[in-house]
């Protein structure tokens, strides 16, 4: 499973001057030997990684495989009720991993979804890993697309590939990565398959070696189109660095109080500035 190599061939990242495994001494070598599981000891860390996903996709298994912790796993939504955190070291960088509650969406008003949404939007994780059930990809893409509207630093972990194989379902990860604009890693976390590739891609996105061009919603209902463009125009004027103005406009039109408050308090400007700065910093390092 060497899918990440495939992305490096993709056109949008041709600008990258180096593929990580050649001429790069401190780049993490692509194996689990470089992973140090830190459990819950994570006093200092270089990057924050959020772990999102539908219920029942093996999110906790991925969490456990990365941190060496033993979060309870189960077939049920809402298992991870409190936000679990753990850490690991990879390629000389310390990562803090935050396990968000498993949700189907980020738009409804349940507490779980609010916790997850707020962390991705306001917590500004350096990478958001979205764990996806390969056998139910279409349903899972709902959450993926919503996360990609909010953040532009994400990695999709296409988990349960063993299940997919058992059901004779084939997923073209390369095509998927191209359409989503973020790395897609095929994995079977229960067998620890794909975890090294996942780590490498998380590292690449966090360090800026890989620049995501996330899929953004273009088509919306014609009824909304005018309102969105008027509003997002205004938002763009006010917060010129914000990458996802259309999304913010949509949330305002839906009466989302957290976004309204963020506009009022100017926090939105803060966020936009941070993500723009990160982007700028990454572009200059290359």
């Amino acid at each position: 499973m060497q899918n990440h190599h495939k992305f490096t061939e993709g056109e949008e990242i041709n600008s990258m001057s180096q593929t990580p495994n050649e001429n790069c001494d401190d780049c993490p070598v692509h194996n689990l030997g470089n992973l140090t599981k830190l459990g819950i000891n994570m006093s200092q860390f270089d990057f924050v990684v959020a772990l999102a996903g539908n219920p029942n996709t093996g999110k906790s298994t991925v969490f456990n495989a990365l941190t060496g912790l033993r979060q309870h796993t189960g077939n049920w939504p809402g298992k991870t009720v409190t936000r679990a955190e753990g850490g690991f070291v990879y390629g000389n960088k310390r990562f803090k991993l935050v396990d968000l509650p498993g949700t189907y969406s980020l738009l409804s008003t349940s507490t779980d979804e609010e916790v997850a949404r707020d962390f991705i939007l306001f917590g500004q994780p350096d990478v958001t890993v979205i764990v996806v059930d390969a056998t139910r990809l279409e349903r899972n893409l709902n959450l993926v697309l919503q996360v990609l509207e909010i953040t532009d630093r994400a990695v999709v972990c296409l988990n349960l590939m063993d299940e997919a194989q058992r059901h004779n379902i084939k997923v073209d990860t390369r095509r998927l990565a191209k359409d989503l604009g973020v790395p897609v890693v095929a994995a079977a976390a229960r067998q620890e398959e794909g975890i090294p590739e996942l780590l490498k891609n998380v590292y690449d996105v966090a360090s800026g070696a890989y620049l995501c061009r996330p899929h953004r919603l273009e088509r919306t209902a014609p009824r909304l189109e005018k309102a969105i463009s008027v509003l997002s125009g205004k938002i763009k004027k006010e917060f010129p660095l914000l990458p996802n103005t259309r999304w913010i406009a949509l949330r305002l039109l839906d009466g989302d109080q957290k976004i309204i408050d963020a506009v009022k308090s100017g926090e939105l400007g803060n966020l936009s500035a941070k993500s723009a700065a990160i982007r700028a910093a990454r572009e200059t390092t290359k």
Binding site: E138, L141, L176, L217
Partner: peptide, 30 residues
């Protein structure tokens, strides 16, 4: 603007997300 567009924002948003999801999934999944 909210007065003008009525109250279907959430519905149409999910609709368009799933329209994209369907397209992406159908290209990637056999």
């Amino acid at each position: 603007l909210r007065w003008e567009i009525g109250e279907h924002v959430h519905d149409s948003l999910i609709e368009s997300i799933y329209a994209d999801a369907n397209q992406i999934a159908s290209r990637a999944v056999t």
